[in-house]
Design a protein around this nucleic acid. Structure first.
Length: 549
RNA sequence: GGCUCCAUGGUCAAGCGGUCAAGACACCGCCCUUUCACGGCGGUAACUCGGGUUCGAUUCCCGAUGGAGUCACCA
């Protein structure tokens, strides 16, 4: 069999040789130890936390080593492609602080190793496929879907491994004449890799995260070029990552089982294997069991969800980093102010067992991240979010900028800052009582206080309220008011002699708190009143007085 | 089902032959306190199960069990 003749029959239009491409894409000139990583999403218009997780690993690996991080669009499946997905993807990643050095951009691409869209690399794949055919390492296969299904049925009946391999690969040894005839008659075909592997034999691949992996050799004659001439993932990955000079392939653990295919392909093409880093998949509880994050089933885990809720990108990154590298959290505790970039990221410290996504933990991280920010930063962040998702609110906040700053300044910046801000939607709920148009009464009066007393408390408080009082003077008045009405001035007194009092000053001030904020929990009341101003404070008191009836 | 990966508290996880088995989140209690939060102190809670190897296994090996992933002309 003259494989060269076959190669020319199959790919008459391909003139370039593998050597030509080697010259076009020479090894990168980078400092010793620099890592080249890439993100290779398929443009389905959907990315979730798990994708971000991997992207952070890629980004850190490259930028920490003075290497390159690029974006390659893996659009080899036209069925799943979504219009406008690429700009969306880039923007979403950018929002969370993931930026690329080269590859696809908002309106094109940049870099010397392109094209970065697999759909535009057809000739390249075909050239290498041709080369494999010429070496007898790949061949055209004319099997129809029905034939393949029949083979599979037979294999299942005989409890054999499914797939096209060995004797099941019916087109393996077609003569040149037969191939020429079938093509001449318009039969469609794919190009398959001619595997000479034996699953009884194992190969060892050293994974950057998991260490040595022992894998059975691939024996499947996998499709490398679909009937459309478009490559499958396996082939595109091997060709692209070699030509783009990727040093570290970070991808999900779901690829582990097809790694033998990739190893065989790299060998057949005579190329060096990149360092594979198979990350653990991010899991989620689904009823009683854990399960991999899924695009279809978990829309609430999409990046867009976190953006909409107003999760701070830095917090999301911080959280992901804590589960990405097991020593990140301790480093952060020791270096609360340091930039995340200063952390020394390593693949060895990456977890290799399924990690459950933990919203509680994310929220906790958010509190810390926001507590580190200044009032100005918080406001800016809220405004930016509101402009996109709550325009009315944005206008309101911009209008009352000084008030907002005061609100966000409450207990901020000191040794023990409050940590009750989590994400925008929650923050807004948290501070909503400052705005008359968003004020609602959420809680009810403390049980210790009768309605009659509540009314009286509000009445007396209204009369005596003076915004000029400092915190101490103001509270002294509240104490007096409490005492006058038969409530203990100090909670401890009440606890000691509960029979002598109706309640204590805490109950009394909660009546006031409820009138003013609509809830029984709030930051320091005096501060809140200072920010609100006399008019709003008295308005609320009067309103509450009326509401009691 | 075959193959692969994984296995420490509810969750994320340190550990890499000898530890009273870290820490964080969550939870509970106490203190601080006019509420809440913050902070401080304390607490509940774990090495999946069998065999080996070893003076000694959470740690190494084998097996079982469990969980996950994958078996496409999808990535």
């Amino acid at each position: 069999m003259d494989y060269n003749k076959l190669a020319n029959l199959l790919f008459p239009q391909i003139r370039k040789t593998p050597e030509d491409y080697e010259q076009m894409y020479p090894p990168r000139k980078l400092p010793e130890g620099a890592k080249v990583t890439r993100l290779g999403p398929s443009p389905t218009g959907f990315i979730h936390l798990g994708n971000l997780y991997g992207a952070f690993a890629d980004e850190r690996l490259a930028h920490q080593s003075g290497g390159v991080f690029f974006l390659r669009i893996e659009d080899t499946d036209d069925k799943r492609e979504v219009q406008g997905a690429v700009p969306m993807l880039i923007q979403a990643l950018h929002h969370f602080g993931v930026n690329f050095d080269e590859g696809a951009t908002m309106n094109g691409e940049t870099g010397d190793y392109g094209p970065y869209y697999q759909s535009r690399r057809g000739e390249i794949y075909q050239c290498f496929a041709k080369s494999l055919v010429a070496q007898g390492l790949a061949y055209p296969c004319f099997m129809t879907e029905e034939e393949i299904a029949a083979v599979r049925a037979e294999q299942e009946a005989q409890k054999k491994n499914p797939g096209i391999y060995g004797a099941y690969a019916k087109c393996r040894d077609l003569s040149f004449e037969e191939v020429a005839e079938r093509i001449g008659s318009g039969q469609e075909y794919v190009i398959r890799f001619r595997s000479n592997g034996n699953p009884e034999n194992h190969v060892t691949v050293v994974d950057g995260i998991r260490g040595p992996l022992s894998l059975p050799e691939n024996d499947q004659d996998v499709v490398i070029l679909k009937k459309t001439g478009i490559p499958t993932y396996h082939f595109a990955h091997v060709v692209d990552d070699h030509l783009m000079r990727t040093t570290h392939v970070v991808r999900g653990e779901e690829w582990l089982s097809s790694l033998p295919i990739h190893v065989a392909l790299f060998q057949a093409l005579g190329w060096e294997l990149p360092t594979y880093c198979h990350t653990t998949v991010l899991m989620k509880m689904d009823g009683e069991t854990k399960r991999k994050l899924s695009k279809r089933k978990d829309p609430e885990l999409s990046l867009e969800y976190y953006k909409q809720e107003g999760y701070h990108p830095e917090a999301v990154r911080e959280y992901l980093l804590t589960i990405l590298n097991s020593n990140y959290e301790e480093w952060r505790i020791a270096n609360p102010e340091a930039a995340a970039e200063d952390f020394c990221f390593s693949t060895e410290k990456m977890s290799n067992s399924g990690t459950l996504f933990d919203l509680d933990k994310l929220n906790d991280v958010c509190k810390d991240v926001l507590a580190r920010m200044s009032a100005e930063e918080v406001l800016l962040y809220m405004l930016k979010w509101a402009e996109e998702y709550q325009p009315g609110l944005a206008a309101l906040m911009a209008e009352q900028r000084d008030k907002m700053l005061s609100i966000f300044s409450i207990d901020r910046g000191g040794e023990k800052p409050r940590k009750d801000l989590i994400y925008c939607r929650q923050i807004f709920r948290f501070i909503s009582y400052f705005f008359d148009e968003h004020f609602i009464v959420e809680d009810s009066y403390p049980a210790e206080v009768s309605m009659k007393d509540a009314k009286e408390i509000l009445n007396r408080y209204f009369q005596s309220y003076d915004a000029e009082d400092d915190n101490e003077a103001w509270f002294a008045k509240v104490r007096q008011l409490a005492a006058d009405m038969g409530y203990a001035q100090k909670p401890k007194d009440f606890k000691k002699n509960p029979d002598q009092y109706k309640g204590h000053v805490g109950h009394v001030s909660n009546v006031i708190r409820l009138a003013i904020t609509g809830r029984t929990n709030s930051p320091d009341l005096w501060l809140i009143q200072q920010i609100m101003g006399t008019e709003q404070v008295k308005g609320r008191i009067a309103q509450a007085f009326q509401d009691i009836g």
